[in-house]
Amino acid sequence: MTEYKLVVVGAGGVGKSALTIQLIQNHFVDEYDPTIEDSYRKQVVIDGETCLLDILDTAGQEEYSAMRDQYMRTGEGFLCVFAINNTKSFEDIHHYREQIKRVKDSEDVPMVLVGNKCDLPSRTVDTKQAQDLARSYGIPFIETSAKTRQGVDDAFYTLVREIRKHKEKMSKDGKKKKKKSKTKCVIM
C-alpha cells in the first residue's frame, strides 16, 4: 500500500485542523484551538488504489514558523489553505509557496490551493482571484467548507493525484537520464 505524506499549511484560523478532522473523523470542530502540530493517518481508496494518507496539520501562528522547514522537508505534497473571508490569509499563500519551493529546492512541488469556509456569506476573496492565482502557479484550486464537508475529500484526493503525477514524471525523467548515460565512448 502506497503511503502519501501530505502537509496542510496556511495562516492561523483558516480551518486547516477543521478540514483535516472532517476528512479523518467526519465531524466539524467549530471551536478554535490553535494547533502546534498534529499528525493523522487514514486509509482510503483513490482511483481504485488503496493508500495510506499521513497528514500533518501544522501551526499557522507566526511564533511556530521555525518548525516549518522541518515538516516541509518531509512532506510530499501540500494543501495551501486560505479562508475566503480573510484576504490576508490569501496573500500569505505566496509566502508559504515560496518557502516550500526553497526548502524542497524545487520549482515543481505537488500543491493544491484550497479556499476554505465557502459556506460563509462574508467572502472577501473572489473565486476568480483564487483561480487566477492557482493557474499562475500551475496547481489545482478547490473551494471547501469544513463545516458542510463540501470539497473536503476532493481537496485531499486531488493532492494525492498531483503527487502521483509528480512521481510518474520524475521516474520518466530518471529513465531518460539513465538511457543517456548508457551511451559509451570508444577510443581507438
Rank of each mutant, 00 (worst) to 15 (best):
G77S: 01
V112S: 00
T183Q: 11
L52I: 05
F28S: 01
A134V: 09
I24G: 01
T124F: 08
Y71N: 13
V160L: 09
G75M: 06
T158R: 05
V9F: 13
Q70L: 13
L79V: 13
D69T: 04
E31Y: 05
L56Y: 07
Q70A: 13
Q43H: 08
C185S: 12
Q129I: 04
D92G: 05
K104R: 14
Q61V: 06
Q43W: 05
V8G: 01
T144I: 14
K178P: 13
K167C: 08
R135I: 12
L52S: 02
M72L: 04
L133P: 04
V44F: 04
D38E: 03
R73H: 13
V45P: 09
D108M: 11
I46F: 05
T127F: 10
L159G: 03
E76A: 15
S39F: 03
V9Y: 06
T87I: 12
V114Y: 12
I24W: 00
P140H: 04
D173V: 05
I84N: 15
V152I: 09
K117M: 14
G15V: 03
A83Q: 13
P110K: 02
E62P: 07
Y96N: 00
T144H: 15
L52C: 06
D132V: 05
E107M: 14
H95V: 04
M170R: 12
I163E: 01
V186N: 13
D105E: 10
C118Q: 06
Q70S: 13
R102H: 13
Y137I: 11
N86C: 11
E37H: 02
V44P: 04
D119T: 15
A18Q: 01
K104V: 08
V44E: 04
D57Y: 00
T158G: 07
K128P: 06
D92E: 13
I84V: 13
L79I: 14
Q150F: 03
V45N: 10
M67G: 02
M111S: 00
K117N: 14
A66I: 10
K182W: 02
A59C: 14
I36Y: 00
S39Y: 06
K104C: 14
T35F: 15
D57I: 00
T87G: 12
Q25P: 00
V112A: 03
G151R: 06
R102N: 12
D153M: 09
Y157C: 10
Y137E: 04
G115F: 14
D57N: 00
K117R: 14
K167Q: 09
S39L: 01
I142H: 04
V45D: 11
K167A: 09
E37S: 03
T74H: 10
Q70V: 14
I100R: 01
R68V: 02
Y32L: 04
V125A: 10
S122M: 10
D126H: 06
V114G: 00
I139K: 04
T124R: 07
I46G: 09
F156E: 09
R135M: 07
L120I: 07
E49W: 05
S145G: 14
Y40S: 02
S106D: 11
V152M: 11
G138R: 09
D154F: 08
G77H: 02
M188S: 09
D30F: 06
A59S: 04
E98G: 03
M67W: 03
R164H: 09
V160P: 07
K176N: 12
Y4T: 14
D47Q: 05
D108G: 07
A130G: 05
M111P: 01
H166K: 13
I163C: 14
M72D: 01
S136M: 13
K104H: 14
R123W: 05
M72R: 01
I84L: 13
R135N: 11
R149K: 09
E49Y: 08
V81R: 01
L56M: 13
L120S: 12
D69H: 10
Y64K: 10
V152A: 09
E91G: 03
K5P: 13
E63I: 01
D154I: 06
S136C: 07
E76S: 15
G15D: 03
E162R: 05
S181V: 13
F90I: 14
D173P: 12
L53N: 14
T183N: 03
C118E: 07
K42D: 02
T74L: 09
R41W: 00
C51Q: 07
G60I: 15
G13C: 04
E49N: 09
K167G: 06
K165I: 12
F90R: 15
Q129S: 09
L56F: 06
A18I: 04
V45T: 12
Q150K: 05
V14W: 15
K42V: 03
C118R: 08
G12D: 10
K5M: 03
N116Q: 14
D105W: 01
D132L: 04
Y71M: 12
R161M: 02
R97T: 12
A18P: 15
R123E: 13
S145P: 03
G75L: 04
D54C: 01
D54S: 03
K128V: 05
K167V: 07
A11T: 12
L19W: 15
Q150W: 03
N26S: 10
Y40V: 04
V44W: 05
S106F: 09
Y137H: 06
Q43C: 05
V114C: 04
M188C: 07
G15R: 01
G13P: 01
Q99Y: 15
K175C: 07
K16M: 15
C80I: 14
I36P: 00
G115V: 08
I100Q: 00
V45Y: 03
V44K: 03
L52Y: 02
A11Y: 08
I21K: 01
D33I: 00
K88N: 12
V9Q: 10
G48A: 05
T127E: 06
Q22Y: 02
I163T: 08
P110N: 09
V81H: 13
I84P: 15
K165V: 11
C80H: 04
H166S: 08
K117I: 15
I93V: 07
D105L: 11
D153S: 10
V114Q: 00
Q25I: 15
R123P: 08
E63Q: 03
D38T: 00
I93M: 11
V8W: 00
L56C: 07
D154A: 08
R97L: 15
T2N: 06
R149C: 09
I100M: 05
S145A: 14
I187Q: 03
